[in-house]
Design a protein around this nucleic acid. Structure first.
Length: 582
RNA sequence: GGGGGCGUGGUGAAGUCUGGAGUUCACGCCGGCCUGUCAAGCCGGAGGUCGCGGGUUCAAAUCCCGUCGCUCCCGCCA
């Protein structure tokens, strides 16, 4: 039998291990001219190994030639480190291997960057050599965290009786919503598949098929500009259940998310997660994804200024708007910083932003202080619970704009007490329509979301509520779901209210509308962003940190060079010809 | 589509505002010394078209224009 390359992994070693052979990478090397130390790293940990030329003169030459990140195999005996040389910073710091045999399995060129968490490297360079970047302990730990989270989720879903079903990734394009990633068809020139933005309609079909409880760890694609928490290609935990309402969905997602959290953090979060209505969230936090780890909530000051002489406030109130503010706490901000805040407010569509500092004597320092009555100032300080040194920020505008601006500023000034804390939160009772930055009503969810009352949706769209809900943690949207429409007539009406004509709905979704006619069970579901969840559990600010091979902001992969041009023959097969560049 | 930041030996930074010899620091790399270190130490060395192109100037890493790349954000993401 051929000799094994290794008998143990570092993490499996105990004080009793004998005749040990290890294989791994040289993480660091300390060559004293005689005795040489290596820190040998494998996937499970790190161990100091010692080459002593007095004991093994035949190893001296090769040991001296070994460089960082050489892949080597060593064998020998474990022994306690000599008195005074124990390294308390190392998990295996009480032991070392006395090397008897040493083999270079594979040499390494000088590295493009150091493999060390303490050395920061430009991300483009890291992605170009991602296979080296992933050797760094932090990245290796992130990969493991992701694997643990996903496997905990799978176990939990299996325990709860869910069936994993794979849905296709070459599907029909439905150009509503995000931009589709398209794949040309070779057999039908001029026709295209789309990569799924989510398995939405297939999982609904599975409900019709009699699959009672479906889940999938599904790869999804949206061809939109990236952000720190968005890539064109991402992974969702996708679930759907028949004969379900909202409570059933939340009761299924909670243990899955709790299990993933426990698998990575070691602590299972308390369930059920708290719930808050969308309206309450907008009123208190100015956003539908509130970070509830700190206060600094938005306060409606309209009552205090009902009869104000200050035109900026009275004007907004006369237009049906509000005066709202936050107490940003003790802040020292120069004029330029304050101007920056005003600029931010204007970007969000506000006409302006009022700032005030509370002086030691309780008076207010602000360019607009002279326009306010004494009773108004007193009420303001009281309503915002303001004290000396506090910065108060006030916006008079439509409720939508004031909320957006103050919600933003709240995040800028508010600080959670602990960064380890996870505040999971359900935001429920979403409206059917939300206002975009221009103030227009746009659908808040996909058109398969059940409204609470389809008639209300038609007659009072601005106030109609849908059976839709989001999962939020620490101010980040983790996922969303809804009770679905299971009745063809309701589905038709919803398309109508959303402005999709019968002809258009029939052309794009006729196949789905027909499926609804064959005894569709009531059903509901959800999708959780796995990349976002794992990045939060791993305390990473960027989902690329928990994706093995992510893309840059321009959608490129610096490692493989994708996307690339393809040769003319490939295009010809697809019946595609490129337009000349502009 | 728009706004901000960044781009300087292999890596990370300083230098740029206020133009004056590719200058500096740390790490890495190469060689030597060194027998208990652990981000080993000491000595020596190599290595850069300051992202790219153009302009201003006696002189540009530095000022101006353009462009490319990375990144954060707005729009967008039903």
């Amino acid at each position: 039998m051929a000799e094994e390359v290794r008998t143990h992994r570092v993490g499996e070693l105990t004080a009793e291990s004998t005749d040990v052979r290890l294989a791994g990478w040289v993480d660091s090397r300390r060559d004293h001219g005689g005795v040489i130390f290596y820190d040998l790293r494998d996937s499970s940990g790190m161990l100091q190994v010692v080459v002593d030329p007095d004991a093994h003169p035949e190893l001296a030459e090769i040991a001296h030639s070994i460089r960082l990140e050489y892949c080597i195999s060593v064998s020998g005996q474990l022994r306690p480190r000599p008195e005074g040389t124990v390294n308390p910073d190392m998990a295996t710091g009480g032991f070392e291997m006395a090397v008897e045999e040493l083999t270079v399995l594979s040499a390494s060129d000088a590295l493009p960057f150091q493999i060390d968490d303490r050395v920061e490297v430009d991300e483009a360079k890291r992605l170009e050599y991602r296979y080296l970047d992933l050797r760094r302990p932090q990245m290796a730990a992130n990969l493991r965290a992701r694997s643990k989270a996903v496997s905990a989720i799978r176990r939990q879903m299996d325990d709860m009786g869910f069936m994993e079903v794979e849905t296709p990734t070459l599907i029909r394009s439905t150009p509503e919503g995000a931009r589709d990633l398209l794949v040309p068809s070779r057999l039908r020139h001029g026709n295209f598949y789309a990569l799924p933005q989510s398995p939405q309609l297939f999982k609904q079909l599975l409900m019709i098929s009699g699959v009672d409880r479906y889940y999938q760890i599904a790869r999804c694609y949206r061809d939109e500009d990236t952000r720190a928490d968005r890539q064109i290609e991402f992974t969702q935990l996708d679930i759907e259940g028949a004969f379900w309402g909202q409570d059933d969905v939340l009761a299924a997602i909670e243990p899955a998310v709790a299990s993933a959290t426990e698998a990575v953090r070691g602590v299972r979060p308390q369930t059920p997660f708290p719930r808050m209505t969308w309206q309450e969230s907008m009123n208190r936090f100015g956003t539908d994804k509130p970070d509830t780890r700190f206060g600094m909530e938005l306060v409606d000051l309209s009552a205090a200024f009902a009869a104000t002489e200050f035109k900026a406030f009275s004007g907004a109130l006369a237009d049906g708007g509000v005066v709202r503010g936050i107490n940003a706490g003790p802040q020292e901000l120069a004029r330029s910083g304050l101007d920056g805040l005003v600029g931010t407010a204007q970007e969000k569509g506000a006409k302006g932003l009022v700032w005030m500092f509370v002086e030691e004597d309780g008076s207010l320092r602000s360019p607009v202080a002279k326009f306010l009555g004494d009773d108004e100032k007193v009420a303001l300080v009281k309503m915002l619970a303001a004290s000396s040194g506090d910065l108060l920020l006030i916006v008079a505008d439509s409720a939508h704009v004031a909320g957006a601006v103050l919600g933003d500023l709240r995040l800028r000034f508010g600080k959670p007490e602990s960064h380890d804390e996870l505040r999971y939160l359900w935001v429920v009772d979403f409206p059917v329509f939300e206002r975009n930055s221009s103030g227009e009503l746009t659908p808040a969810h996909h058109p398969f979301t059940a409204p609470v009352d389809v008639e209300e949706m038609a007659t009072d769209p601005a106030n109609a509520i849908s059976k839709a809900y989001d999962l939020v943690v620490n101010g980040i949207e983790l996922g969303s779901g809804s009770v679905r429409i299971h009745d063809p007539e309701t589905q038709r009406k919803v398309f109508e209210v959303l402005g999709v004509s019968d002809e258009s709905a029939e052309a794009k979704f006729g196949w789905f509308m027909e499926a609804l006619r064959y005894g569709t069970p009531p059903h509901a579901g959800f999708a959780v962003g796995i990349d976002r969840l794992v990045s939060i559990l791993a305390n990473e600010e960027n989902i690329r940190q928990v994706m093995p091979f992510p893309k840059t902001q321009s959608g490129a992969d610096p490692l493989t060079g994708a996307p690339t041009e393809v040769d003319g023959a490939q295009l010809a097969e697809l019946g595609i010809e490129l337009l000349a560049e502009d």
